[in-house]
Each structure stands twice: as structure tokens, then as C-alpha cells.
């Protein structure tokens, strides 16, 4: 069962990384810089959650998982805010 969960985690990470690779195309950033930035950080957040819960095993420690996930979400929001700053200078 745990092996199966690991395979699912790896497959999910590969799919999300494919999404990140698609986002690396420069044309997307020229057309939709804000949406692309939000997408890149959301994908990173989702991947980091999988690594924490499945690879590092926090799924077995729900209170720690919650703490890490809240901290991670706040950190990604901070990164997003700093990224958006030059796009909305006023």
C-alpha cells in the first residue's frame, strides 16, 4: 500500500513538473505574466506538499503536516506578493 502511495506521489510530481516545464515557454509569460507567475508558484506549492506528506512521511503525523502546510502556504503567498509587486506598483 505504501509502495502504491509512493508511485502515485511520483506520478503526481512528474505531472506537475510537466506543467512547470510548459510554463517555462517564454510566449506564455509575454502574454499572461501574472497568471503564469501564479501558476508557477501554485505548481511549486503542490509539489512541495507531496514531498512533505509522502516522501518525508508527514501524512502519518497530521498535526505536523498541518503546521508545515500552513507555513508553506504562507511562504508561497509571500513569494507571490513579492513577485506581483512590480506588476502593480501603485
Amino acid at each position: 500500500m505504501k509502495d502504491q502511495q509512493l508511485h502515485i506521489a511520483w506520478g503526481s510530481l512528474m505531472a506537475l513538473s510537466l506543467g512547470s516545464t510548459l510554463l517555462s515557454q517564454p510566449g506564455i509569460w509575454a502574454l499572461w505574466p501574472v497568471a503564469a507567475g501564479v501558476g508557477a508558484l501554485v505548481l511549486a506549492w503542490l509539489k512541495a506538499r507531496i514531498v512533505l506528506s509522502r516522501y518525508l512521511g508527514l501524512a502519518a503525523a497530521p498535526s505536523w503536516q498541518r503546521g508545515f502546510e500552513i507555513s508553506l502556504a504562507l511562504f508561497c503567498l509571500l513569494l507571490l506578493g513579492l513577485y506581483l509587486l512590480p506588476h502593480y506598483p501603485g
Partner: peptide, 11 residues
């Protein structure tokens, strides 16, 4: 996973 989008992707 956190370095990659910030350094390489965010434009």
C-alpha cells in the same frame, strides 16, 4: 522545487 520556479521561471 521552490528554487526552480523563483529563479528560473518567474519573469
Amino acid at each position: 522545487l521552490l528554487l526552480f520556479p523563483v529563479i528560473y521561471l518567474l519573469q
